[in-house]
């Protein structure tokens, strides 16, 4: 064989290997989703979505769980976006490079790796007890916001970094202050990237169970929340609760609830991708 043939063979071999690796992930995912759908799809009907939880599997519904999840998502969003984006802007645009800022930077990335139960304990102590929020939606949202804050900060910084320095120079050159430059030029230009990070963060938050259990979210909440100070449950906790029961009917309920949770995540991601593409079409360096 000539050298060229060998190289082409290597090329092909790697291509097949790549396909194989991709397929492993896809097949496992497809199997999982197929399994869930097979078990749960027939269980989903109007009653299932609108019924309160019950000790009888066939009467139990997920109204309080998905309502709780939506409350949690909204408040987590409201807390994490201003905090995370502002912190990202500060670190990227204002903060001076120093040993301290480097340390801070490493630690923010490390925070993303801290187990979520730890955040639950932190939330229980600070928001639940110290701030007296108890096991309310606000306490849960604040805890989850803390948990996903590093994701938003890091994504914001990456998005800001991607804005060419020449844009800042142009703005400064016209006499704009730092804030004017950030607000009028840098932020709009990095909006797509920031949004992607926020969605990633919220998708993570919506699936979290452990920290909410730690702060005292209940599996059995017989009413839908009407204020952020109310007690709550969320879909993952409901799922966890059902899965851990011995009766087969409950695991079917769990499968059905998983489908709903997947749909919520899917729709949220879809909306985000839509906005990002729409935004990025306008901005093309």
């Amino acid at each position: 064989m000539t050298r060229g043939q060998i190289n082409r063979l290597k090329d092909k071999a790697f291509a097949y290997f790549g396909v194989f690796c991709t397929l492993i992930g896809l097949v496992i995912l497809a199997f999982f989703i197929g399994n869930i759908f097979y078990d749960g799809i027939t269980r989903i009907d109007w009653d299932f979505l609108t019924n309160l939880p019950s000790r009888k599997a066939e009467k139990a519904g997920i109204l309080t769980a998905w309502a709780g999840s939506i409350w949690i998502v909204i408040f987590t969003f409201l807390i994490v976006v201003p905090l995370g984006v502002a912190a990202g802007i500060y670190l990227e645009e204002y903060g001076e490079k120093s040993k301290l800022s480097e340390l801070l930077e490493v630690n923010i990335s490390n925070l993303a790796g801290v187990p979520s139960v730890i955040y639950g304990l932190l939330g229980l102590e600070i928001f639940g007890r110290l701030f007296g929020m108890g096991n309310s939606i606000l306490a849960g949202s604040a805890t989850l916001a803390l948990l996903v804050l590093p994701i938003v900060i890091v994504a914001t910084r990456e998005a800001l970094k991607a804005v060419p320095p020449s844009i800042r120079a142009a703005s400064y050159g016209l006499g704009a202050t730092k804030w004017q430059t950030v607000w009028h030029q840098v932020l709009p230009a990095s909006f797509g990237g920031i949004l992607t990070g926020v969605i990633l963060a919220i998708s993570r938050a919506v699936g979290e169970t452990a920290p909410l259990i730690v702060i005292g979210a209940l599996a059995y909440v017989p009413f839908t929340p009407s204020s952020p100070m109310d007690e709550f449950t969320v879909l993952p906790i409901q799922i966890f609760n059902w899965i851990s029961r011995p009766q087969h009917e409950f695991s079917i309920n769990a499968a059905a609830a998983i489908i709903v949770l997947l749909l919520i995540t899917f729709v949220m991601n879809g909306i985000a991708v839509y906005f990002r593409n729409k935004w990025q079409k306008k901005i093309n360096w």
Partner: peptide
Amino acid sequence: VDELRKGIGMVFQKPNPFPK
């Protein structure tokens, strides 16, 4: 510095229009 620059315009080596 921002006041100073309002009186001193600059045109850069590479065109750098805002994405607007």
